[in-house]
Amino acid sequence: MYEPIRAKSVHSTMAGTTSDFPHRSREEELDIQLAGHLAALLAVTDELRAQAPSTDLDSAAERLADQVARLRGGRTPARMAAAVREPRLASLHQRAHALAGRALVVAASRADTTAAILAAQRMDAHAEALEPRELASH
């Protein structure tokens, strides 16, 4: 009715046995996830810098690049070439705010204070950029 199994299982099912495939620790998985979120935030930051240059965004981009490199073992992140597109700053700030929030959650779960502070600062900056400006009436 059923054909018997002829090959050894690829999964380790017995206690105390080691497998041949690599395993990552929870810490390594969180590092990979955090680096991904910060790299995505860096890409959006570079896009914002191309459309609305500012020293705050320049500084944030450098700090983000440093954190991504740290989490990736010194490998520098890929950076976006400055390509100016139609103005869509609000949607970029919204995307950056969401990415910074995701990075903050992962940084907090792995107790990475430096990355958590950076992510929180970026969330604040992008939230402030999204606030409607009140016009002073004189």
Rank of each mutant, 00 (worst) to 15 (best):
A103T: 04
L99W: 05
R75D: 07
R88G: 07
P53R: 13
V84R: 14
Q94G: 02
G74R: 04
D58A: 12
A115S: 15
Q121A: 14
R63S: 10
D112H: 05
L104T: 08
L71I: 06
A83V: 15
A60F: 09
S109A: 12
D56V: 11
L89Y: 01
S59G: 06
M123W: 06
R102Y: 05
A52D: 15
A65M: 12
V105I: 09
E47W: 05
R88W: 02
Q51E: 11
D112E: 03
L118T: 03
V105L: 03
I117F: 03
L118Q: 00
A103K: 01
E62A: 14
R75I: 11
R70E: 01
A100M: 11
A98Y: 08
S91C: 01
T113A: 14
Q67D: 04
L71M: 10
A50L: 10
A96K: 01
D66R: 13
R79I: 10
A50H: 11
D124R: 08
R133Q: 14
A96Y: 00
A111M: 15
R122H: 07
H93M: 14
A65D: 13
R110Y: 03
R72N: 11
R63A: 15
A78V: 08
A69L: 05
E62I: 09
L130Q: 14
R102T: 02
S91T: 11
T114Q: 02
R85E: 15
M123N: 06
T113D: 07
A60G: 00
L71D: 00
G73E: 15
L130M: 15
V68W: 01
L130N: 08
T45H: 14
L57H: 09
T45R: 12
Q94V: 08
Q67W: 00
H126W: 00
M123F: 03
G73I: 12
A81P: 02
A100D: 00
R70V: 03
V84N: 06
P77L: 13
Q121V: 00
D66G: 07
D124P: 00
A103S: 01
D46S: 02
Q51F: 04
A81E: 15
R79G: 01
P53I: 12
V105R: 09
A65G: 11
P87R: 10
